[in-house]
Every structure is written in C-alpha cells, then in structure tokens.
Amino acid sequence: MATGCLYCDRNETQKDLMIEICDLSVSTVFLFKEQTYYGRCIVAYKDHNVELYELNDEDLLAYMKDTNKVAAAMKKLFNPEKINYGAYSDKLKHLHMHLVPKYVDGTDFGGVFVMNPQQKYLSDTEYSEMVDKIKKELGK
C-alpha cells in the first residue's frame, strides 16, 4: 500500500471519480462516474504495483482474467461494438486498466477515447442500478 495513491488510500478524490463495485480474485472493479462511454469501468490491481511486468506469472494471469471477466460482463450488459483498454498510469502510479465501451455512431468511435470528458453524469439511482447489474453479472 502506498500513501498518496488514489487506489490504495480510497480517498475522497477517488470517490468523486468512481464507485466501487466489487473485488475479484486480484483486483477491485470500479464504475467510472463520468459515463460518456456508457458502462465504463476500471479494474485496479489489489496491491500497489505500477507495471504489468512487476507481477509474477500467476498474478498476471489472474489480473488479466479479472479484466477479461469484467469486459465480458460489459459486453453482455451494454452491448458495445468494441471495448477499448487503457493502462496509462503516467501520473497515477498504480496498476489499473480502463475498460471503455465504444458504440457505433457514439462518442469517439473509431478513435481514441478521452480520459475524462466531464460531459455525462448519471443520477444516484442510475449508478446504483448499473452497479447492481454489473455485480450480478460478475457473480457478486
């Protein structure tokens, strides 16, 4: 655990950006509050690692399986044309992956997604319904 890390500290800044959905085998799944890309989630590794190559083979496989499980749930629930995967961590040094659903004729389809367009937010009820659906699909 690293002090000052958004994912390790679970601070107010994190809570302003995302909603915790559940824990999987080696990760925690979050719903990104900004929903320009409807269904967007983040899969954050459980420990404070920065790079995929820092993981041993077993944990790397488990993390990728967690990520894959979330992507499959997103496809089933939201039916995007494609899911984009982003793992940047330039400024936020904690291993996490953005899973960004892209829809034909939707925002940035055919191009790179915007990290935080700050254009579309949902009601508490809508967030709650999405979280419940994702949890159920993930078997949580």
Rank of each mutant, 00 (worst) to 15 (best):
H96G: 13
I42K: 02
K69D: 14
D124K: 08
L92Y: 14
V43D: 02
D108F: 00
L77F: 00
Y63E: 05
M74P: 00
V100N: 02
G39I: 03
M115D: 05
G110M: 07
E58K: 10
V104K: 13
L24F: 05
Y37G: 06
D23M: 11
G86F: 01
L77Y: 00
K46C: 02
T107P: 13
D66C: 13
S25T: 12
K102Y: 01
F113M: 13
F109S: 14
T36C: 15
K46T: 05
E126W: 00
V100G: 11
L52D: 03
V50T: 04
A44T: 07
K76V: 09
T36F: 03
F109E: 08
V43N: 12
Y53H: 10
N79L: 05
D23G: 05
Y37I: 03
V26W: 00
E54K: 06
V26M: 01
K76I: 15
A62S: 07
D57P: 01
L24Q: 13
V26E: 02
M64W: 15
Y127E: 05
Q119P: 00
D124F: 00
K33E: 09
P117T: 10
G106N: 02
D59C: 08
D124M: 04
E54V: 06
G111F: 02
D66V: 08
K69N: 14
L60M: 11
H48N: 14
V104Q: 12
Q119R: 09
Y103S: 09
E58Y: 01
Y88D: 14
M97E: 05
